[in-house]
């Protein structure tokens, strides 16, 4: 197959894998990447429910505007696209029906 723009994924070197939890499940990501990026890679796309109709939602704008990628970290709602991944983060999805 002709590749004018080759697949360079194998040439990318990243920091070591670190573990964090999302709704209690252990997930790995690379230290220093955005929490949203780690969640997307792990296939955890459904991060919250829309408050009015419980419509499943996930990261959308990836630049800190749309507020769709909100998750709960240390009791505070945060934009996962703007949180730097550190080992041991305890992240929960934002479900309004389920007490916060």
């Amino acid at each position: 197959m002709i590749r004018l723009a080759p697949d360079q994924s194998a040439q990318i070197r990243r920091t070591e894998k670190v573990e964090f939890t999302f709704d209690g499940t252990a997930i790995w990501g690379h230290a220093g990447e955005s929490l949203a990026a780690a969640l997307i890679r792990s296939g955890r796309l459904h991060l919250r429910d829309a408050p009015e109709d419980a419509d499943p939602r996930g990261a959308f704008c990836l630049m800190g505007l749309c507020q769709e990628c909100l998750v709960v970290l240390e009791g505070q709602t945060v934009e996962s696209c703007r949180i730097e991944l550190q080992p041991g983060l305890d992240v929960t999805s934002l479900r309004y029906g389920a007490d916060g």
């Binding site: 955005s34 796309l45 499943p56 990836l62």
Partner: peptide, 24 residues
Amino acid sequence: WTKPGVFGLAGATALFKQNLSPPG
């Protein structure tokens, strides 16, 4: 368009440039 896995077209480029990851 609200389903998880739909990303803004420009938004996706943030993932490429910052994280060097594809969206799926």
